[in-house]
């Protein structure tokens, strides 16, 4: 969830911006989508680990530690869901009628004013869809998480990791089954909620 503002920013840059290195940013954002998750997790470990350049700096300045903590699991989930979120938001931003933005400008709206009063509200269904996709991806994220922060009970054991652990344990089938049901329920609930919201938004926005 914390990655949403970043995703909107990146999507804006990709949809509207013209700057050197745009293709590079585009590639970088999509990297987690095409790389094997374990590779992403390994890169995170190198970068954000306690000895990693970013991890070390973050710990020194703000006392934030990612490696082998739940924060790290969240970071891995966020990174893995990021490309999906950016793609959905970017598509919906590109679909917003630029002529409406022009009209807003003639009425005295500044660039940020246009963004918040016109562009983002009109792109909201896409933003929402992106967030749900990322949430689903994050829920299922396994490879990068287990590589980056391992599978520590009570700290970094995510739902898939827990299910995996239980299936590897004799007699854990029943518990695993319960968790599977929870996973299904969570995913379905997210999907239905987003569908309902998107429909309401779309009917409000449809011109």
């Amino acid at each position: 969830m914390a990655s949403l503002p970043f995703a909107v920013l990146v999507a804006l840059a990709l949809a509207r911006g013209r700057f050197p290195g745009k293709a590079l940013l585009d590639g970088l954002v999509h990297l987690p989508l095409v790389l094997p998750p374990v590779v992403t997790g390994y890169l995170l470990l190198i970068g954000f680990g306690r000895r990693g350049p970013i991890g070390e700096a973050l710990e020194a300045c703000c006392g934030v530690v990612f490696s082998f903590r739940w924060t790290g699991a969240a970071l891995a989930a966020g990174i893995m869901g990021f490309p999906l979120m950016v793609r959905a938001i970017r598509l919906s931003l590109e679909a917003v009628d630029r002529r409406l933005e022009d009209a807003a400008a003639t009425l005295g709206a500044s660039r940020t004013g246009v963004l918040f009063a016109v562009t983002l509200p009109l792109a909201l269904p896409g933003v929402l869809a992106g967030a749900v996709l990322a949430f689903a991806k994050a829920l299922g994220e396994f490879g990068a998480t287990i590589t980056f922060v391992s599978n520590i009970p009570g700290e970094t054991r995510t739902l898939p990791a827990a299910i995996y652990t239980l299936t590897q344990t004799p007699g854990g089938d029943a518990a695993a089954g319960k968790l599977v049901l929870i996973a299904i329920a969570l995913s379905l609930a997210a999907l239905i909620a987003s569908e309902l919201l998107a429909r309401r938004l779309a009917s409000r926005i449809a011109g």
């Binding site: 009209a103 003639t106 009425l107 509200p121 409000r204 449809a206 011109g207």
Partner: peptide, 15 residues
Amino acid sequence: RRIGVVFQESRLFPH
């Protein structure tokens, strides 16, 4: 510029 524009396609904000 403070120039009010009325466009052919009205361009009202649908939301």
